[in-house]
Design a protein around this nucleic acid. Sequence first.
DNA 1: TATGCCGGGGA
DNA 2: TCCCCGGCATA
Length: 513
Amino acid sequence: MASVLSRRLGKRSLLGARVLGPSASDGPSGASLPLEPQAEVPEGAAPQPFLASKDPPCQEQPKEVLKALGTTGLQQVAFQPGQKVCVWYGGQECTGLVEQHSWAEDKVTVWLLDQKLQICCRAEEIWLAELQGVMPQVPPPEHGAQAMAYRPVSRNIDVPKRKSDAVEMDEMMAAMVLTSLSCSPVVQSPPGAEANFSASRVVSGDPWKESGDVSDSGSSTTSGHWSGSSGISTPSPPHPQASPKYLGDAFGSPQTDHGFETDPDSFLLDEPAPRKRKNSVKVMYKCLWPNCGKVLRSIVGIKRHVKALHLGDTVDSDQFKREEDFYYTEVQMKEESAVAAAVPSAPGTPTAEPAPTPRVTSPSLATLPLPLSKAQTSGPEHSGLESPLPSGALSKSAPGSFWHIQADHAYQALPSFQIPVSPHIYTSISWAAAPAAASPLSPVRSRSLSFSEPQPPPAAKSHLIVTSPPRAQGSARKARGEAKKCRKVYGIEHRDQWCTACRWKKACQRFLD
DNA sequence: TATGCCGGGGA
DNA sequence: TCCCCGGCATA
């Protein structure tokens, strides 16, 4: 556990290092960015600052102008490529050329002449340069088109021809934008900090290609995730809000740094289940979500499962990032059962239906308090698992007194038994220090036995060896008591004074706890 | 490392 | 059944 824990903590520490900081956008642009899902970002996911979508001077002007022109809706303005427009960007009004106007999303891609970069914003945030009197070098051919742009009629423009391309491009841009929003915190930086950088980058190369590099600048590990896929065709990593279809991808947490998320997991994916114990105990990961109980073999799988199926859309902000860590638990089970449990549910196929074997245990797990808060789950494992256990027949019918009733040789009256298979098990909250091991005789395991016993369908679990309650209780390894044992009392040199049990290295019968 | 004790085995 | 001990878990 320690390794896993440390690794997990390590991941968290890595996450803590991610740069997606508050972005401290003091400018007009950054301030509105996180709150405005519609806000656009320069395409290419470049960390270019975004223009203020809500900037009053920006919006009022075009509104008035358009209203004056009898426009029914701002969104109806048609911009044509090459059109010279004004846009509020970087706290100032900038002129640029329209590159594309996506009608479907009402977004306009504008090439800023001053900044020499490309931005994407809503049509309503753009107004024609002529109306401002800022029409120095408008190409004559576009003049007529500009005039038509004032009319909200798309019929004057060859919309169908452009629409498909524009939509496609805008979808891509939107994807990249969303990606950059979630991956590249630099995007939210104040314009001034990035203007030069972005400009130089864009000027020197294809803006589309910049996404990957820019992502690199945001986080070195982030690039590993999607810079490779930042090609023109599929640039978008999942964004749960925008593209729920990507929920299946475990790394779609919107506000998380995908790079940090992905890389450690990819390591974990390949590594064998940590801490295999001598008795072929295999570590599984069980979903603690109520009524789920899915068991997967890999952390990646369980995270993916939790994220995709349970957290999914709720993962919306930093405070929820990696929340899935708290919805799964490590489970140790014997190899055979582990395999049986793992086979039906491959990590790569996170489905809602639990694996056969784990499902049997799920009712109990379903009673677990949902670890909604870290404080709630920060307790040791038994806080979650053992509390429901006493309801089991074993626990109630076999108090510890039974053990104490045993005679001096009680240990001999307790034939050893092995639990061949089963979800016996100790579980531990993933980030809590787990017991060093699940000894076959540990009390934890004993509880686990009772924990598994009330399972309804015994027939379906024929592999579960039903053990007699007294034995189950008696065989539980006694917790180390505070009472002095013969060895301590009499010392090793007076071994003859020890109780028989102590002499035989059995549980002391003289100084019962 | 010391202690407690389970599991196993020999007598 | 008595007795012992290897080995493991835990403090």
